[in-house]
């Protein structure tokens, strides 16, 4: 048995020096990135980072606690609208507004989590689905929220500097993303995270060990909603304009796809899933201009389907991805990564 000097080593963020090394490389990469890329690429990176935040939060709920939410777009919408309205009506600065919006979303998450205590998986799925749809319906019908037309997002300025370019926004967004990823990692290796995983594995055993199911399930909802809320605020900033149709049911499913494809119950899974699915989603918007695949799809479209409907190929692909991952790789990309790692360690035996 290896000798441990201190029990903290069991749970420290980086288990081995090599992890620290890779993390430093990653940080350097994140710092260099805006210096070597165009503004357009930066806007993609920003969008990806924001989705990673949502995925981190949703994974806590779905992957760690074993609950489900089909209405996370609703929390993102609440965060986005709260940020904008707090800035407009109360004249708050961006950061206080963003944090407060996170708490507003968390409050709604808490409320939605309350019935969750009494609901098993399928019922909860239905309730959250209804929640997500109700949020956009209510926003779309109320003039205070700008109705269907939506709201214009004010320019943000931090310490007197107005942030306008994607590169400037990148600094803010990526710092928040890294911070929130670490916070989530901390949470999941602490007492609270352990209790949540225990609920997923056996809620009855967790309860007989003193875990208050009611409290921890609502807590999981609230934290998850907080992440979605903050992401919503950032989303509003990079979009510059928000309306209820952005936060539709498909968005909620896309978030779920990020968790499933990345790997439920793993921080690295959230990050991988957020990156890969968002990237795919963005690429698919211009699928016809892709080499080979684009031609093939155009061919299929003209022969059997319709060319004008080709953008819907995105849904087809994500549907297939969801099914394939659940059936063949329930641990997602993270599971594949673990297997590759194991393979190399024992190679060539």
């Amino acid at each position: 048995m290896d000798m441990k000097r201190h029990y903290y080593e069991d749970i420290q963020i980086f288990q081995k020096p090599v992890h620290v090394f890779w993390f430093v490389i990653l940080l350097i990469g994140l710092v260099i990135l805006p210096l070597v890329t165009r503004n357009y690429t930066m806007s993609l990176v920003n969008f990806i980072a924001i989705n990673v935040i949502v995925t981190l939060g949703l994974n806590l709920l779905v992957g760690y606690t074993g609950q489900i939410s089909l209405g996370h777009a609703g929390f993102v919408a609440i965060g986005a609208y709260a940020t904008v309205l707090l800035m407009q009506h109360l004249g708050l600065n961006f950061f206080p507004a963003l944090v407060l919006a996170g708490f507003v979303a968390a409050g709604f998450g808490f409320l939605l989590g309350l019935p969750a205590l009494r609901l098993e998986g399928p019922y909860l799925a239905i309730a959250t689905l209804g929640f997500g749809m109700a949020v956009t319906q209510i926003i779309g019908r109320s003039t205070f929220f700008g109705g269907r037309m939506g709201l214009k997002v004010p320019k943000i300025n931090i310490a007197g500097i107005t942030l306008s370019s994607d590169k400037e926004l990148y600094i803010v967004i990526i710092s928040i993303t890294v911070l929130m990823a670490f916070a989530m990692r901390n949470l999941t290796r602490s007492r609270v995270g352990r209790a949540l995983i225990a609920i997923r594995e056996s809620d009855i055993a967790a309860e007989t060990l003193g875990v208050n199911l009611a409290w921890y399930k609502t807590l999981s909802f609230a934290v998850s909603a907080f992440y979605a809320g903050v992401a919503g605020g950032l989303l509003a900033i990079i979009f510059g304009y928000i309306n209820p149709s952005i936060f539709d049911f498909v968005m909620s499913i896309l978030f779920l796809a990020m968790v499933v494809v990345g790997g439920a119950g793993a921080i690295l899974g959230s990050i991988l899933g957020g990156i890969v699915v968002t990237f795919l989603d963005l690429k698919l918007n211009a699928v016809t201009s892709m080499p080979l695949i684009g031609d093939l799809l155009r061919e299929i479209s003209t022969r059997w389907m319709s060319v004008s409907g080709l953008p819907n190929f995105r849904s087809v692909l994500f549907g297939i991805l969801l099914i394939l991952f659940v059936v063949f790789e329930p641990h997602g990309l993270y599971g594949i990564w673990l297997r590759i790692k194991k393979y190399w360690k024992t190679w060539p035996f």
Binding site: I68, I253, V260, S306, G309, F313, V316, G319, L322, V327
Partner: peptide
Amino acid sequence: IVMTLGLQMFIYGIIGW
């Protein structure tokens, strides 16, 4: 649940396409 959602997305896309 995720599998039925996958099917939902898939068919939704097929119809639109």
